[in-house]
Nucleic acid binder design. Structure first.
Lengths: 153, 153
DNA sequence: CTAAATTAGTTGTTAGTGCAACTAATGTCA
DNA sequence: TGACATTAGTTGCACTAACAACTAATTTAG
């Protein structure tokens, strides 16, 4: 069943489209929670999520872990600094690099959000069996790796 | 294995995050093709994709099929009109409603893009077996339906 | 039949994104 | 060592997206 010669494109069955719709829906629901409770955007939340795992890392390291553009990161970091959710200092060994970490306040917020996030993930995945969850997860990883390889030939 | 009490969040294993990254990667690769060859954004391409399937439909109908905001649609439609890729007339029975269709040029572009899109989809899915593809597709549908129901309780 | 409500589409405003140009610090190598 | 390249991060700018307010046409209800 090759589709390559079909006359028209059934958008609602087109995988890239469906992925995008699903992802937007899912992210949108989470974003609402974060926004209402903590006035955090997805971008800001991702930064804090990384800082909860890895402390005193540079913007560049955050960038590689979140896939966020460095300019976007730079502006988001300024915002979080202004709100005192994170702290920043200059690295002793390389004064270009900054070392960023959650502040005490940021840590509190973080610890409130993490369980919420997992609850949401769990609620979302409840419509799949355990084995389906594993399968889905694995397929995503494989698709990503493959898409990546298609991209840079 | 409930995760709800975990101390920190492994962002790179968090499903909503991975979905978003995968979706961006996939859409990004396609967007490049469309942009390079036809100077079309994803939004514009989606509109044309719907018009290739359903002709003489209103902006509102396009909106429900693409999930695009009506303001975004309105501006994208103006652009496509200026480039003569689509045509618009006022519905005879309801003068608020417009009837939009691909122009001859638009149709030509459309017919070039459709096979490209399917080729890409096929290439992307080549890393999965047929049965995995079906499974993945089904899981996406179920997750979407479920997310939808979580959203509007 | 007409006033209020609804619907289709447009436009204004604001904030976020993405790219490139820029500054400053560090690394490289002849 | 000293010109050149590279790296970390910031900023300027054009563009898109999201939300609400708006216009115009139509439907609904008293």
């Amino acid at each position: 069943m090759t589709k390559a010669n079909q006359e028209h494109l059934k958008l609602e069955r087109f995988l890239p489209y469906r992925l995008s719709i699903l992802s937007n829906k899912v992210s949108g629901i989470i974003a609402e929670t974060y926004k209402d409770k903590f006035a955090l955007s997805i971008t800001e939340w991702r930064i804090m999520a990384v800082l909860g795992e890895f402390s005193d890392i540079s913007a560049d390291e955050i960038s590689s872990k979140t896939q966020l553009e460095k300019s976007i990161l730079s502006r988001a970091i300024s915002k979080l600094l202004k709100r005192n959710l994170i702290e920043r200092s200059i690295a002793a060994d390389d004064r270009r690099r900054s070392e960023i970490r959650l502040s005490a306040t940021g840590m509190t917020v973080y610890r409130e959000i993490v369980p919420l996030s997992y609850q949401y993930e769990e609620a979302l995945l409840k419509c799949l069996t355990e084995s389906e969850q594993r399968q889905f997860s694995e397929l995503i990883d494989r698709l990503y790796a493959h898409a990546d390889s298609l991209n840079t030939p």
